[in-house]
Amino acid sequence: MKNNYFFKEKLLNKIKKGEIKMKPKVFFVLRTLGLVACTLLCLLLLVYLASFIAFWFKANGFGLLGGFGFWGVQRIFFALPWLLILFCLALLFVFETLAKRFSFVWRKPLVYSLVLIVLFALLFAFIVSKTGFHSRLFFKAQQRELPLMGSFYRACPCESPRQIHFGKIIEKKETGFLLETQANEKLEVVLSEKTRFQLEKNRCDKNINQREAGTLKTIAEKLGEFTLGEDLAVFGERDGLVIFALGVLKLPPNFKAPDCGLINLKGKPFVKPQTFRSAPTS
């Protein structure tokens, strides 16, 4: 009892001398506001990046690769912006750490808030993808009219030679065909035994990969299945005006190819997609 009294008195003396001071109420109000602001900022950044990844995915046409089965999925896997995805996961962790300070979050199992935030990010990404938000920003970035975020958008793989090319077949050749793109370029598509075809929905044709048929003969057979003027998507590395096709996909009529900002807001294409900085022709 004596020790208790001594402890209490020692503490009260320190308080009266001003050695221990009470923090003012405004400190806690500002702290809470700061926490709310940081949490919201984290959330906004997370959903923005999620919508950007969705935009990137759509703009590069990677959604179409799914039709090529395991090969397509493999391509998607290796092409994903993993650094950005890892950053999003880190951001998610930071968000959860901040959000756990609020009682309505820690009172429920963590999985509820995680699922909620993931669903919210996906919903937001879906809504934004329906608008031209990222396309407009990408277009402005190409025009050097976007401060701060410009370099982020210019680093988007849409600018570099894309692995997917959309266009109409205008001429058949011995080893492939000529493809006229939206930007009025005539690209030579070279087919080989490595090329996979998806000429029907959900059916990936790998017959061309059978060596015993003879590559050139099989190419000719395959070309017979195309008609001039047909819309196609060709997957493959581009070397100048030549594409070494790894996949050819027949597109449905009136298919709207993702433009990733290559088509300006008035619907006119750039003359040369490689030179994004040139003004579009009217």
Binding site: F7, L11, M22, K25, F28
Partner: peptide
């Protein structure tokens, strides 16, 4: 620890 606890209680009593 006990001292620290009560010091923190006093400092943060407004929260």
């Amino acid at each position: 620890v006990l001292q620290n606890i009560f010091i923190k209680v006093y400092k943060n009593i407004n929260s």
